[in-house]
């Protein structure tokens, strides 16, 4: 087998594992989002990290939908889209209300309910 054929074979097997790569990317994106929620101080950035986690879950849904040959996963992604849109709308409204009342966006300063 010459080098070109073996390279093509490598890519052929790699092509068969798109689902696995997608699942790995999904897992790492979820971890990145989860770490970001803890590490960042700005409320808006924390909300963007939540969106990143939702996107990672969507990727896993699409990958499993591909692997099993059904569309149920894609329909669940549709529902995640609606929930994410609603969450962004309400969350950003809360951010605007916070900015108006406290004039601060640092999550550490919102400790009114802290025991």
């Amino acid at each position: 087998m010459d080098g070109y054929t073996s390279t093509m074979n490598f890519f052929a097997t790699a092509h068969a594992s798109f689902v696995q790569v997608a699942l790995a990317v999904s897992a790492f994106l979820f971890v990145i989002g989860a770490v970001g929620v803890f590490v960042r101080r700005n409320v808006i950035t924390v909300m963007m990290c939540v969106e990143l986690m939702l996107n990672a879950v969507n990727l896993a849904f699409v990958a499993f939908s591909r692997a099993h040959g059904t569309i149920d996963g894609q329909i669940l992604v549709f529902f995640v889209f609606t929930v994410a849109a609603a969450e962004a709308a309400v969350g950003l409204a809360i951010v605007i209300a916070l900015q108006r009342n406290r004039e601060d966006l640092d999550v550490d300063s919102f400790n009114l309910l802290k025991g």
Binding site: A16, V31, F38
Partner: peptide, 26 residues
């Protein structure tokens, strides 16, 4: 958060490694 991230990363690598092999190729 960083410790949580490391634990989550290790766990998810293990899960993907074990679980994704048995998936049907479609």
């Amino acid at each position: 958060g960083i410790i949580l991230g490391i634990v989550l990363a290790v766990q998810s690598v293990m899960v993907v490694w074990q679980g994704a092999r048995g998936l049907p190729a479609n």
